[in-house]
């Protein structure tokens, strides 16, 4: 599959109606702005990186480049995804220290592209959702459903993800 949208990712807030790519994780409908999406690919061969957090599923070979893939289910709810035929990797561009880096996120299923008017966006509730509030950017009302708009920057926070298991263990050791 080629690029769905060519162009720079980034903030798109100025327009009234925006397009979102929706997908399913943990049985919930989630979405990210279409301009953040670089590509959607099937799940192929993936290489595990030892000593990293569980939510880092591994790295894939994207036309000769090594791209890390985050297991979204594991990242959001600490449950490893089980691969199915419908599993997909959504490649997004994330700004890391002034550079754009391509990263993948493993989702259970990709749905469709929706146009959601800005007026239908709401602030995330303080509690009540299955996933941590900090990962939610906004909630979008679409017909009778609510779609979670993910905070990409938070999901792909390098500070969180680059912690190694050793550090995690050490942190636990120190606590005990």
């Amino acid at each position: 599959m080629g690029n769905i949208v060519a162009g720079q990712p980034g903030s798109v807030e100025s327009e009234e109606t925006l397009q979102y790519l929706t997908f399913t994780v943990l049985g919930e409908l989630m979405a990210i702005g279409i301009l953040d999406v670089k590509e959607i690919i099937e799940v192929g061969s993936m290489t595990r990186i030892p000593m990293t957090l569980d939510c880092i599923r591994g790295v894939i070979n994207l036309r000769g480049n090594v791209v890390p893939v985050i297991d979204l289910r594991s990242r959001l709810a600490d449950q490893p995804s089980v691969l199915s035929k419908r599993s997909c990797i959504v490649l997004v561009q994330v700004k890391v220290e002034e550079e754009y880096q391509t990263m993948g996120m493993l989702v259970d299923m990709v749905n469709e592209i929706l146009e959601i008017p800005e007026t239908d966006l709401q602030k995330a509730p303080d509690f009540g959702t299955d996933i941590d509030n900090e990962f939610i950017d906004k909630m979008a009302r679409y017909h009778d459903e609510f779609i979670i708009l993910l905070n990409i920057a938070r999901v792909f926070s390098i500070d969180d993800l680059s912690a190694t298991k050793v550090q995690q263990h050490l942190a636990l050791d120190n606590l005990s």
């Binding site: 290489t47 000593m51 890390p68 680059s162 050793v166």
Partner: peptide, 27 residues
């Protein structure tokens, strides 16, 4: 040698990745 990127910068024990003839990645 393919860099692993910022995400794995602090990772000790793995210095990079390489693409094999099969298209798979080895560390």
């Amino acid at each position: 040698i393919k860099p692993l990127g910022k995400l794995f910068q602090g990772l000790k024990g793995i210095s990079g990745a390489t693409v094999l003839g099969s298209g798979d990645i080895a560390l």
